[in-house]
Design a protein around this nucleic acid. Structure first.
Length: 412
RNA sequence: CGGAGAGUAGUAUAGUGGUAGUACACAUGCUUUGGGAGCAUGAAGUCCGAGUUCGAUUCUCGGCUCUCCGACCA
């Protein structure tokens, strides 16, 4: 994409009052726009990153047999009443003009909706197991939205639900999802820690969370330095300095961001909502269910919180909005155009800074702020050597590469 | 929901009970081009409501919004 055509631009000033790095950097660089507290628009650059993250999540969900669907955000009262989740404070409620009372809630979780769907297709043990997921906006009436897109009232979430004939099948799949989640976070450049936790309003059972250690995190975990066994302080009886119950290693306390979670709901919802199947003997049994969530927008915030320096964002290649930031300095735009086209032809995603009214300093500053992993600079100076300069966002080294070797350098 | 702070131009800020200033961004022209450029000209602003006052952007009260701390928290 030509930067001269990008409708957003960067700003030198940090937005007033913001403290969270993700809020400051994403807004300054033009990735997001804050419409209200905890309610954000994703602009071209930000939406590209979101799509990259969604792509990774999708691949890993598909790899474990998750089938992608799309459910409504509007959930009618009748779905939520049987599970006694209709009237919770977490909801944003809505109604038609003629109704007196709210008869819809904007979806903050979709167990009920998907269970209704599953009821139509699940009659026999032969129909099980299966899993389905969606990537969709969730609405939660957070008492205190905060920290940019880390904790929003409207946010992007992937929610996966699995359905099983027995607990063994569920446990088996639970482990598969766990592995997939580790892969997703790793591919996003994050080290996640599998943490034993409670379920808040959602369940009285233990659950598991995927935590990324970060000072801005709202959670606190007790983490074994040796084997990385971890428990959330919400439910833990451990203290810092204790010995790990698994391996005897030393327990330390860390602030962390919850980027994902998995819930074994057992047969709670299927009983409440009437989701049964017939086993081999023709007997009716409740379906075993589990739910697995990843907040995509929170994941994006977490990546920014953990990948930045004083000049801006440093995107991991896997989620960067573009592969290459091509910058042309001075009067060499025809050579710049050629390189842009040649790279684009090879499916390399290029943000091409072709703006001729901007100074070199401003282009470099923008480039650092936006944080594309690889920068390619072409100028009179480099052209004298038939070359371009290459610099990685996370390095200070500048490499000179001849133009004819550029594509293979980038593709390697 | 409790506590604290803040609302002045697109953004970030200064200031004043009596004509509102600066920087960036924006528009026009010229110059400039390797780390957020220079000169000139121009357009653009006091969150909403009530009160005090001859007069309120400034003081008082109420509201709304935003940020932070806490409570809460798939």
């Amino acid at each position: 994409m030509r930067q001269s055509e990008l409708f957003t631009k960067t700003s030198k000033e940090a937005p007033k009052d913001e403290v969270a790095k993700n809020a400051i950097l994403l807004e300054r660089a033009g990735f997001v726009f804050k419409n209200s507290a905890g309610v954000y628009s994703f602009l071209p650059l930000g939406w590209k990153v979101m799509q990259k993250i969604a792509g990774i999540v999708r691949e890993e969900m598909n790899a474990i047999g998750g089938q992608e669907i799309f459910m409504p955000a509007m959930i009618e009262k009748k779905y939520m009443e049987p599970t006694e989740r209709w009237n919770l404070d977490i909801g944003f409620f809505t109604k038609g003009l003629k109704e007196k009372d709210a008869n819809f809630v904007l979806g903050w979780s979709h167990e009920e909706v998907l269970t209704a769907i599953a009821s139509k297709f699940t009659g026999s043990y032969k129909d099980l197991p299966f899993s389905a997921y969606q990537i969709q906006t969730k609405f939660r009436n957070e008492p205190r939205a905060k920290s940019g897109i880390l904790r929003g009232r409207e946010f992007m979430m992937k929610d996966l639900y699995s359905f099983h004939a027995d607990e063994a099948s569920l446990s088996h799949y639970y482990e598969e999802v766990k592995t997939a989640y580790f892969k997703i976070f790793e591919r996003c450049g994050l080290k996640s820690i599998y943490t034993l936790a409670g379920g808040g309003i959602f369940t009285s059972n233990f659950t598991h969370e995927f935590q990324v250690v970060s000072e801005v995190g709202e959670d606190t975990i007790l983490l074994c330095q040796k084997c990385e066994y971890a428990e959330n302080t919400e439910i833990s009886k451990l203290k810092e300095g204790n010995n790990c119950p698994k391996c005897g290693g030393k327990i330390i306390e860390k602030k962390s961001i919850e980027v994902g979670n998995i819930f074994n709901n057992g047969i709670k919802y299927s009983k409440e909502l009437g989701l049964y199947f017939k086993d081999k003997n023709g007997e009716k049994n409740p379906v075993w269910m589990a739910a697995y969530g990843i907040g995509l927008s929170r994941l994006m915030a977490t990546i920014v919180e953990t990948h930045n320096d004083e000049n801006g964002i440093i995107w991991p290649e896997s989620v960067a909005p573009f592969d290459v930031h091509l910058i042309v300095l001075g009067n060499v735009s025809s050579e710049g155009d050629k390189i842009y086209e040649s790279l684009t032809k090879e499916n390399i995603e290029v943000l091409y800074d072709d703006r001729d009214e901007k100074t070199a300093g401003e282009k470099f500053a923008d480039s650092d702020l936006i944080g594309i992993p690889l920068r390619v600079v072409i100028s009179q100076k480099t052209l004298e050597k038939d070359s371009v300069e290459i610099r990685k966002r996370d390095s200070k080294e500048i490499e000179l590469i001849t133009i004819k070797n550029l594509n293979s350098y980038i593709n390697r």
